[in-house]
């Protein structure tokens, strides 16, 4: 009995969705937010904040789906191949979307993607052990200049969000370190704490615990302004090095999605993320939920492309 009921419900849902007018967007079916990273990461957590308030503001469910195959390309291709109806969106930072596209052949062009809402900005941060010789950025750079390549820095994956600022900083401040790629922030943290490397590069959420108990010290941030999570840490720009390379977690639609649907999504998602409950969840998870609309996030997207092109051109 129960089984027939379920069968009926599902067939009704299918036929019902097809028959509805477009005016009902986005309430006809759940929105799928495809992430190129594994569940449990920072992108995942930020997306789930939206997902947990979606019922109220988007009139539908938002399912976060993690597909981390092929360095994120599987997720991007899935969104690209899905019907351009606004129900399948991409949420990512710039790594899989831009860096990979600039490095190798991918199935898409960068201007195929339209940023809908930037959920948050993420600041790359350099850090070291508090009991080591590198307690501020100036000393670190001086020591690195004194013996090029002797200081090792663990930085997450190759050409990832914390690695690119390190490359840029070395060019601007003219020093050289031994870059050690790791599987991500966790391993970079382990290497610094265990003394395997002298310093590390990651994002604030990775080192929050170590900063809290005083075992780590944050050297500098690669953003335009200081961040709430690390109020005492200077930016590189303050220190006189023009290295501003923040990352972002942004929701993208394919450009074939009708413009009016994008506008609806922008409006609803902005409203959802600005809601008190989303802001509260952001505060609880240490995610600085500061949504930017289509125009501002498009600007951030294009600036990032220009910056990355410049850096990657220097290393190949």
């Amino acid at each position: 009995m129960k089984l027939t009921h379920l069968f009926l419900a599902s067939t009704m849902a299918v036929t019902g969705a097809a028959g509805m007018a477009a005016a009902d967007f986005p309430s006809e079916q759940p929105i799928r937010l495809i992430s190129p990273y594994g569940a449990g990461g920072a992108v995942d957590i930020a997306s789930r904040i939206l997902s947990s308030v979606s019922g109220e503001y988007l009139d539908t469910r938002v399912d976060v789906i993690s597909i981390d195959g092929a360095g994120g390309q599987e997720a991007i291709n899935l969104v690209r191949d899905a019907p351009a109806d606004g129900y399948t969106l991409l949420v990512t930072d710039y790594g899989p979307l831009i860096t990979t596209a600039l490095q190798e052949d991918v199935s898409y062009e960068l201007d195929e993607w339209v940023p809908i809402v930037q959920i948050t900005e993420v600041s790359p941060v350099f850090f070291a052990r508090a009991d080591g010789p590198y307690t501020d950025m100036e000393t670190f750079i001086e020591l690195a200049q004194a013996d090029p390549g002797a200081i090792s820095v663990a930085h997450g994956r190759y050409l990832s969000v914390p690695h690119l600022p390190l490359i840029l900083l070395e060019q601007v401040a003219e020093f050289e370190t031994n870059h050690i790629p790791t599987t991500g922030g966790g391993q970079a943290l382990a290497f610094v704490l265990g003394g395997q490397t002298d310093a590390g590069a990651s994002v604030p959420s990775t080192i929050a615990g170590g900063i809290g108990d005083g075992s780590l010290v944050a050297l500098a941030l690669a953003t335009a302004e200081r961040v709430d999570a690390l109020p005492d840490t200077p930016t590189l720009r303050e220190l006189g090095y023009d290295v501003v390379l923040p990352a972002w977690y942004t929701i993208f639609a394919h450009r074939d999605v009708p413009a009016e649907r994008m506008a609806i999504l922008e409006e609803r998602i902005m409203e959802a993320l600005n809601s008190p409950s989303a802001q509260a969840l952001g505060g609880r998870t240490g995610t600085d939920v500061r949504p930017l609309g289509m125009e501002a996030s498009m600007e951030a997207y294009q600036t990032t492309i220009v910056n990355l092109e410049a850096i990657l051109a220097t290393i190949d």
């Binding site: 615990g209 108990d213 969840l281 505060g283 998870t285």
Partner: peptide, 10 residues
């Protein structure tokens, strides 16, 4: 983290 607890020494 979603419960507002930062994993780590503290």
């Amino acid at each position: 983290i979603m419960m507002g607890i930062t994993p780590g020494p503290t």
